[in-house]
Design a protein around this nucleic acid. Structure first.
Lengths: 254, 254
DNA sequence: CGTGATTTGTCCGTATGTATC
DNA sequence: TGATACATACGGACAAATCAC
C-alpha cells in the first residue's frame, strides 16, 4: 500500500493528506455511506503515521459531517445523501438521472394476494379483492437505495411482474401495459429502525434508520394504479420538495 | 392507586379494562411514544390481577400496533404517529390543530452568529453576515415533537427571540415583526439516529430515529426570512404530502 | 449476566519545524 | 542570533463504550 503513504515535508500537513484521501474515497464511492472505516490503528498503519495523526484527520472529516465516530464501535461514513425530488411526477429513474446516478431495479418476489384494508382503500378496491404484490430492490449506481413493496389491482396489471423483471422500471413496465403516464396522488413519510433482514437486503449496517414512504400513483384519469411502501436507506437519500416560488434564482427546469 | 384497580364481574373482562386503561394513557400522552411500560409484574400489582391477565391485555395492544414487546427488554409504546401535512403554507400550530392537538413552543437558546455557508445560501446573505440563531422545542399536547434550530437575517428580525419567547409561535412572532404571511420555499427530509442530548430534550428513548427537516420560508416578496433545521421524533410524526386531484399533462410551474 | 476483545476518547509527555518579534 | 509561540507529529497509557460469546 505504498500509494497510501503520506508525503512528509511536502508543504501539506500529513493529517490533511489523510483527510483528503479519505474524503476522495467517500466521494468516489469506494467508501459507501454507512460503511465503517478501518480502525484508527489500521489507518495509521496504512498511511504510515501515528494514530494521533489519523485522529486529527478524522476530526476534520467529522467537522465537515463526512464521518461520525462512536466510541467502542468505530468511525462511519456519513456521506451526503443524494437529493431525491418528490414531485407530482416523481419517477425513480428520472430522479436519479438528474443527479448523475444510474438507476436499476430487481424483482425479488411477486405473488397474488387479497387486498388488505389499507391497500384496498389506497387503490379504491373492495377489501379482499385480488391484487398483485411485488417486492423490489432499487439501486443507484449499484448501491442499494430502497426496498419497495408494491400493490397493483389485478385484472388490469396481471403482466406487471414479468414486465418489471425485464425492464427493472415501473415506468417502463406500466408503459408496456398501456399506462404511458401517471402522477403521484399522495405521499406519506416516516422513519424507523431497520429490521435485520431489511438491513441485509439494503446492505446496511444493522440498526441504521429507514425512511418509510407510502405512496399512491394514479393514471391520467385519476384511477389509482399503484400503492407502494418504500423503505429507503436514510443514510443514502434525502427527499426534496421544491415549491415553485416567485423569486427562485437559477431554477432552470427543462 | 385504587383508581387503577379493575372492577370484577362488571361484565367487562379484566384484561380489556387494563388494555383500555393503557390505551387511554397512550392516547392522552401520559405514556409517550417510545416510552417503556412498567414491567408486567408491576402492572399486575397496580391493577391487582395476575400477571397473565396483564399479558392478555398487552397482547391485545400489541395486536393493535399500540405497543411492542421485546423479550428481555420490556414493552414499549408504539403509538401511531400524528399526520403532519407538508404544504406550501405549512404552519406548525395549524398542522397540529387539524388533528386535534395543541401546539406549544419553548425557546431554549438564542444567539447572534455569523452565517455559515449553508445558512447564507438559504437566506440569500453573504457568508459571515450576522444572523440570529434560535433553538426551540415544540410540543404537541405536552409531548415533545421537534427540536428546531432556526436562523433569521439579523438587522430585520432582531426582536424575534423575545417575540417567540412570549408567544411560542413563529407565525405570531413574525406577525409581531410585520411579516403577516409567508410560504415554504423548499423542504428537505432525511432521517438519522438521535444523539443522546437530542434524545434527552425530546424525551425519547436513546437510539430512536429522527426525521431531519431543512426548510426555508420566504415572505410574500420571495425574500427568505427563515432557514430551519427541525429534528422530529420519528416515532411521533409522519409527514403527508397531498397532491390535489386531477393531473394536468405537462404540469409546469404557474 | 459477566467477561474479554475491540475500538474510540482522553490524558500524559517529548521532539521538530516554522513564523514572529 | 536568540527567545517565544504555535502547529505538527510521535509514543505511550489508560478510560470508556460496544459487541460477541
Amino acid at each position: 500500500m505504498d500509494s497510501r503513504q503520506v508525503q512528509r515535508g511536502g508543504g501539506l500537513a500529513a493529517w490533511r493528506q489523510i483527510a483528503d484521501a479519505l474524503a476522495a474515497d467517500i466521494a468516489a464511492g469506494r467508501l459507501v455511506s454507512g460503511a465503517r472505516l478501518p480502525a484508527e490503528a489500521d489507518l495509521a498503519g496504512q498511511f504510515g503515521v501515528n494514530r494521533h495523526t489519523v485522529r486529527r484527520a478524522l476530526a476534520a472529516l467529522a467537522a465537515d459531517g463526512l464521518v461520525r465516530a462512536t466510541q467502542g464501535r468505530g468511525t462511519f461514513v456519513e456521506a451526503s445523501p443524494l437529493p431525491y425530488p418528490l414531485s407530482r411526477r416523481t419517477r425513480f429513474s428520472a430522479a436519479l438521472a438528474r443527479v448523475g446516478r444510474e438507476a436499476s431495479g430487481a424483482l425479488l418476489a411477486s405473488e397474488t394476494v387479497a387486498a388488505s384494508a389499507a391497500v384496498a382503500e389506497a387503490l379504491g378496491l373492495a377489501e379482499g379483492a385480488p391484487a398483485l404484490r411485488l417486492a423490489t430492490l432499487s439501486r443507484a449506481d449499484d448501491a442499494p437505495l430502497s426496498l419497495a413493496y408494491t400493490h397493483v389491482p389485478l385484472p388490469r396489471f396481471a403482466g406487471l411482474a414479468a414486465q418489471y423483471g425485464e425492464s427493472g422500471s415501473f415506468t417502463r413496465a406500466f408503459a408496456a401495459l398501456g399506462v404511458n403516464d401517471y402522477t403521484r396522488a399522495s405521499t406519506r413519510i416516516g422513519a424507523r429502525m431497520s429490521r435485520p433482514e431489511e438491513a441485509t437486503l439494503l446492505e446496511l449496517a444493522p440498526g441504521r434508520p429507514l425512511l418509510v414512504v407510502d405512496s399512491v400513483n394514479v393514471d391520467l384519469d385519476g384511477v389509482p394504479i399503484q400503492a407502494t411502501r418504500s423503505l429507503f436507506a436514510a443514510d443514502r437519500v434525502e427527499f426534496e420538495i421544491r415549491n415553485p416560488g416567485q423569486a427562485l434564482p437559477g431554477s432552470a427546469s427543462p
